[in-house]
Design a binder for these strands. Structure first.
Lengths: 205, 205
DNA sequence: GGTGGAAACTTTTCGGTGTATAGTTCAGCG
DNA sequence: CGCTGAACTATACACCGAAAAGTTTCCACC
């Protein structure tokens, strides 16, 4: 495969290296040329596989949505419950920070890419069906639509704040005794859907 | 002031134009040179005021944190309550999308800038004191630290998801009957801290 | 065992971009 | 009138994404 002229596995190598670089420096300074130099190929070689810089980011986002969907599906099939789906969402963000950043930065992507749209649709489907299970569980959600938004927003908020370092730098994280992020997620998102313990049963019809 | 050679108000003009451009195309393609061309000055003129491209973004973030702090303080002094502080947070994000994006993208900023640190500290202080009022109100928060994280995360999550267009594109927003974002915020974040009694916001249809 | 073609790269070239440094304009002031 | 500092320009350089044309290698087919 790798004969000195043909890299042999350039597409995979580019994606892996791109994720590393973006994880370290963010998506702004991400450069196709320096990436190609790292991999020992000419600076136009990645272009053959991805078409453009945007193409690399699209591929990264697609990869990310596919993996996120798989994780959420696995959790659902293991009957992990909504809260654990949320924890998984945050875990994915911290384990694949580059993917996560790119996935939710539409100005970096070509939204017309059908593969990206398919992968995203799959992930969003898992998200909705995960949240739907909460409504079925019949907690205290008299406003299921708001519950969906609240559930997604709280885990997405924790993920983005943690990734951007604002949870630590704000001193908020320290309030929790430096618990790991999964614990933080459980304790925080748990407030949303957990039935209040002392108070009486909320008014149901 | 403006004599054809000296612009007269370049610093302000650069910040205003930068916000426009970033609001439209995001912070990644933001270019000092095209911005200078728009304003009719040489491409190195902005550098005199900001030192570097990063300097412009830092100034934008500083401006943003200062305004956010002021908004939160005004709400607190008007006794708006935590939920309305959250609504104000989201409103700020949608009204100053460029500022908001830059403020929470540390890879775009020079974190050593003392002015930025001061403005951010001020805003975070307001945030914490706003959330602290909830604990004092003694709702059902037996885990106040988690409440702080949850409160911030849910409004930050709504803001980022809305700004990135993911609330609409996912179809989640439509579930709420296309309510405006402040209403979405109240209904969603309201689930977090709402006591069994209906909150001051009337939510009747 | 050669031949055609496609896949995977390289080379070259172009315009755009941030940064650095030296030079220019202009208002205010002694 | 001449000096000085603030605000801006001109020039130069290295890097970058994109485009187009050329090169290498493999492989399927005859």
């Amino acid at each position: 495969m790798a004969d000195g002229y043909h890299h042999g596995n350039l597409r995979t190598a580019v994606l892996a290296r791109a994720a590393e670089v973006i994880e370290r420096d963010g998506p702004y300074t991400f450069s196709l040329r320096s990436l190609a130099a790292d991999l020992g190929v000419s600076h136009t070689a990645p272009r053959y596989h991805f078409g453009s810089r945007e193409g690399v980011l699209n591929a990264l986002a697609t990869e990310g949505f596919t993996e996120l969907a798989a994780r959420l599906r696995a959790n659902r099939e293991a009957d992990g419950g909504f809260l654990e789906s949320g924890v998984e969402y945050v875990r994915f963000a911290t384990e694949r920070p580059a993917h996560f950043q790119v996935m939710f930065a539409p100005t970096l992507l070509d939204e017309d890419d059908p593969e990206l749209a398919a992968a995203r649709g799959e992930a969003f489907g898992e998200l909705r069906s995960g949240v739907a299970s909460v409504s079925e569980a019949g907690r205290r959600v008299e406003d299921p639509a708001a519950g969906v938004v609240a559930g997604w927003a709280i885990v997405h908020g924790i993920a983005t704040l943690a990734l951007s370092g604002n949870l630590d730098s704000s001193g908020v994280r320290a309030l929790l005794g430096d618990a790991d992020l999964s614990t933080v997620t459980r304790r925080s998102a748990g407030l949303l859907f957990a039935a209040p313990e002392p108070p009486p049963t909320p008014d149901r019809e």
